[in-house]
Design a protein around this nucleic acid. Structure first.
Length: 115
DNA sequence: CTCTTGACGCCGG
DNA sequence: TCCGGCGCCAAGA
């Protein structure tokens, strides 16, 4: 990958992350799939480097679990944005995680699941 | 040019 | 439901 391509990829990733509305989240693999470029790890690498300027807490793992580094700050944002949670934070049993079934967001498609 | 590493994902126990 | 291992893609040393 040339520097220009990486830069473009980074721009696309950041743009997509910023397009995620409050209360919704997107998985790394989903972002990669939507961009049809690289893979989950590449998205993670981009976020680790340039994620400081975007709502990084709206980006979670496919399972809805939060990356080890983000659990602290993300929870605060989720509480403010009313993001659907599962686990201790939601009064359920288990570790705190995002309810992907309800919080998953897809651009264009809109909101697939969400009664 | 090769080896290691990483904000990941999926399958099996 | 929780834990561990293997696979993927690309960048950095």
């Amino acid at each position: 990958m040339d520097a220009d391509q990486r830069e473009a990829y980074v721009e696309d990733v950041l743009s997509l992350v910023e397009s995620i509305p409050p209360g919704r989240v997107m998985a790394y693999g989903q972002i990669a799939e939507c961009l049809e470029r690289g893979g989950p790890r590449q998205v993670g690498a981009v976020m680790a480097t340039y994620g400081s300027g975007v709502p990084w807490w709206r980006v979670v793992r496919a399972d809805g679990t939060l990356p080890d580094c983000h659990q602290r700050g993300a929870l605060e944002h989720y509480r403010v944005e009313s993001t659907p949670l599962r686990g201790a934070a939601a009064g359920e049993s288990g570790s705190t995680r995002v309810d992907m079934a309800r919080a998953a967001w897809q651009p264009v498609t809109g909101t697939p699941g969400r009664p």
